[in-house]
Design a protein around this nucleic acid. Structure first.
Ligand SMILES: [Zn+2]
Ligand SMILES: [Zn+2]
Ligand SMILES: [Zn+2]
Ligand SMILES: [Zn+2]
Lengths: 159, 159
DNA sequence: CATCAAACGCAACAATATATCATCGGTGCA
DNA sequence: TGCACCGATGATATATTGTTGCGTTTGATG
């Protein structure tokens, strides 16, 4: 199931957006949504799992007919992550479209070791607890990496 | 301040161990604590920041007089992480000695973007909340990646 | 149109991680 | 003793991921 339909099955997070909304939101913030940036974001939305930078390059190559160089891919991904419409999953060296890009939040990913898919959830209580810890230590948080790896429900049945 | 003295300054986590205790604990579990494994773990304990696999290789080279190949380093680090006496920080591609290896827990790291150091804390409430989320979705958690990047207290004063 | 900054292309490179096979040393056993 | 076995390590090559530097193009703006 591609990311664009995934929210139908996710009971955790009521607020969602789609790729067009994400693009519109970036434009509203004054960001340049170039063809490449839109193409990369679309590719992430239509993927059924997190994509590495080089996966993305190959997928775009098929669509565009030409090879886009690695630096362009990385720059584009950096941009999309800064805009909050995509996110990097550190434990996979891969990227996904954020399904909650209509509001500020810390993405939490459940990454299945069997099927490779990553589901995004949100938990404001966790965010708050972590912020309190950081504050107590005088640590100013700029970015949060919250990833759980394991086995998703469908993959457990088949084992 | 190397990791081996760090606990004196950490008000968060009362329970701590040192490198010798960690080695002893592995032995009790029946794990083979070879010279290489002990050397790598000691290097992590005496480091004042997370070390990449190749950093470790270079440090060990100075001590041992010979180059240890990358695969050996990675195998050793995998072993130490499985034993719970070290941990990988995904957002840095680097490794640290775990300061709470005397009991099971999810490591939480506060990673400073300025000085590069990572302080480990523990938060059982966060662990529990995350486990509940996972359970609700039928997801079986095998591993948790909880990392906050930002700026530590000392580094804020100097900016 | 002229100007300027941001985005992009391109080539080379660096850093991180893995695959594969050979070797070594202890353990158990004929 | 001689030998098969197994886990740990060594060694080489290679794969994957990410970056730097620099020149060119693009597009917004006046
Ligand atoms: Zn998100
Ligand atoms: Zn799965
Ligand atoms: Zn720990
Ligand atoms: Zn710092």
């Amino acid at each position: 199931m591609p990311r664009s339909e995934r929210h139908l099955a996710n009971t955790q997070s009521p607020a969602h957006c789609d790729v067009d909304e994400a693009i519109a939101a970036c434009r509203l913030r004054g960001a340049q949504m170039t063809p490449l940036r839109q193409a990369v974001l679309s590719a992430l939305w239509s993927a059924d799992r997190p994509l590495g930078a080089y996966d993305l390059r190959d997928r775009l190559a098929e669509e565009c007919g030409r090879q886009i160089a690695a630096p362009s891919i990385y720059r584009t991904l950096d941009f999309l992550c800064e805009q909050g419409v995509a996110a990097r999953i550190e434990s996979l060296n891969a990227y996904v479209a954020c399904v909650h890009s209509d509001h500020d939040h810390a993405c939490v990913f459940l990454v299945c070791e069997s099927c490779g898919d990553a589901v995004e959830i949100e938990n404001q209580q966790v965010e708050q607890l972590i912020n309190e810890d950081a504050k107590r230590l005088g640590f100013v948080v700029k970015h949060r990496v919250l990833e759980l790896s394991g086995f998703c429900a469908p993959c457990q049945e088949t084992s």
